[in-house]
Amino acid sequence: MRRITLGTLAAALTLGLAGITPAAPASAAVPASVSAPAQRLVSGCSWYTYHYQIDIDPSQYDWLLQVMVTDAGGTNQAFQFFTDTDPLRGTGRFQLCSKNVHAPGRFSLTGELDLSDGVNQTATTLTPFYFQITPASTKKAGKCSKPKYAKHHKKKCRKAKRR
């Protein structure tokens, strides 16, 4: 149970009279969320996607959304900003290079939503979202495993399989 001191009560009353509202308590609903599908880590560098959604009245607030992507080892892999000039619901992209990802597995999306109504400013930490990025299969498919090769290439395929 949280104890309210006389100083805290006086500060709250002073802020209330001045028209400044403190940030919402941690138990309040967060007006933004992030999510991402499970994805495969491919060799080299590739782009990956995630989704964000902000549930506010855009006519009442200026906003800034900061999103961070962290790999399973705790290394920050990407950071991106969205502002009130962006849509309230959209897709973000981040690039991963397999050489830089030392810990594929459970990645996290975290961030912060900053709101301003011209007088008051609040910063709300987003609920983390966890998703999987699994390594691509290490088994390499041979040239002949693809059906796009024509019949006249079958001889080359048979020779390659014998080696």
Rank of each mutant, 00 (worst) to 15 (best):
A11D: 11
V30W: 05
L64H: 11
K143R: 06
L9M: 04
T8V: 06
T5M: 04
A12W: 09
T5G: 06
D71I: 03
A38W: 11
G16Q: 01
P58I: 05
A12E: 08
T83S: 12
R158T: 14
W63I: 02
D71A: 06
H152I: 07
Y48F: 12
T85Q: 09
L41G: 14
K99Y: 07
F82P: 07
V101H: 06
Q60L: 04
P37G: 15
V119C: 00
A26H: 04
T75P: 00
T49F: 15
H153T: 10
Q121M: 04
R89N: 14
L115H: 02
A36W: 08
S137H: 02
V101C: 03
S98N: 12
P147K: 11
K99C: 01
I4R: 00
H51K: 15
F82A: 06
A29V: 13
V30C: 05
Q95V: 13
Y61M: 00
L15K: 05
G7E: 15
W63N: 05
G44C: 14
L6Q: 08
K161C: 14
G19T: 10
H102C: 01
A36Y: 13
F107I: 06
Q121D: 04
G44A: 15
D86L: 05
G7T: 13
L65Q: 01
A136N: 01
Q121S: 10
S98T: 08
N120E: 00
K155P: 03
Q53R: 14
L17Q: 11
Y50A: 13
A78M: 07
P135A: 08
V34R: 05
S137N: 07
G90F: 04
G44L: 14
P37R: 15
A10V: 11
S108H: 12
T5F: 03
Y130S: 02
P25V: 11
L113W: 00
S145M: 03
F79T: 14
S59H: 09
Q77C: 06
Y61H: 04
S33M: 13
A141T: 10
L65F: 08
P31S: 14
P135L: 04
G105Q: 11
L96Q: 03
P87E: 12
Q121K: 09
A103P: 02
G44M: 15
S35V: 11
S43C: 07
V42T: 15
S43A: 12
L9A: 12
K99E: 10
Y149D: 05
M68N: 07
A23Q: 11
N76Y: 00
R89F: 10
S46T: 10
S35W: 09
L6G: 00
V30G: 02
K99P: 02
A36K: 12
C97Q: 08
H153G: 11
H152N: 09
M1G: 10
L15S: 08
S98A: 15
L41N: 14
P128H: 04
P128V: 03
I56N: 02
Q77I: 09
T138Q: 10
P104Q: 06
P58L: 11
A141R: 07
V119Q: 04
L15A: 13
A11S: 07
L41S: 10
N100I: 01
T5C: 03
G105D: 12
T8S: 07
G74T: 07
T110S: 14
T127D: 02
T75R: 12
R158Q: 12
K140V: 10
Q66W: 02
L9F: 06
G74P: 09
L17K: 11
T70H: 03
T5K: 01
K148G: 08
Y130T: 03
M1W: 15
G118Q: 05
H102Q: 09
